[in-house]
Simulated assay, not measured.
Amino acid sequence: MKLVYFAWVRERIGVAEETVEVPHEARTVADLVNWLRGRDEGYEMAFENAAIVRAAIDHVHVKPEASLAGAREIAFFPPMTGG
């Protein structure tokens, strides 16, 4: 699965994107975030307050409980403001 990171999420992790083999236990975006947090310190810092990090599955904004089934790309980004 392709993972894409934006803004300070990318800066803390240290890569803009990567392809990973997501464990079968990771069935939702929240499960994926929990798995990522255990990968190393950069991921832990990026997702230390997971409630504020937004996600999109295949370019559609989703909530943490969204299923990963069939997903090709997951993007993570900080909250956005309008102006």
Score class of each variant (00 low, 15 high):
A69T: 13
S67E: 11
V22T: 13
P64K: 05
A66S: 06
N49L: 09
E18F: 04
D40S: 09
A16Q: 12
M45G: 06
T28P: 09
A56N: 02
N49K: 12
R54M: 08
G38Y: 05
H59C: 12
H24F: 10
G14L: 11
A71S: 15
A26D: 09
E44H: 09
A71N: 07
I52G: 04
L68E: 05
E44T: 07
E18D: 09
G70A: 09
T28S: 15
L68C: 05
E18S: 07
V62K: 05
R27W: 08
M45R: 13
A16C: 08
N49V: 12
R27I: 06
V20P: 01
E25I: 02
A51Q: 13
E65Q: 09
S67R: 10
A71K: 07
T19R: 13
E41F: 01
E48L: 08
S67D: 10
A30L: 14
F47N: 01
Y43T: 02
H61Y: 15
R72K: 14
E48N: 09
A51Y: 11
L32C: 05
G70E: 09
Y43K: 03
P23Y: 04
A16W: 12
A30T: 11
P23D: 07
V33D: 03
I52S: 10
E17V: 04
A69G: 11
R39S: 07
A16G: 15
E44P: 03
I57N: 02
P64Y: 04
E41T: 05
E44C: 06
V20N: 04
V15F: 11
V62P: 01
A69C: 12
E65D: 14
V62Y: 03
D58M: 12
R37L: 03
E25T: 04
R72G: 14
E25R: 04
A56S: 05
G42K: 01
G38W: 03
T28I: 12
A69Y: 10
I57P: 00
H61V: 15
N34L: 15
N49I: 09
P23N: 05
A26Q: 10
A55W: 00
A30S: 15
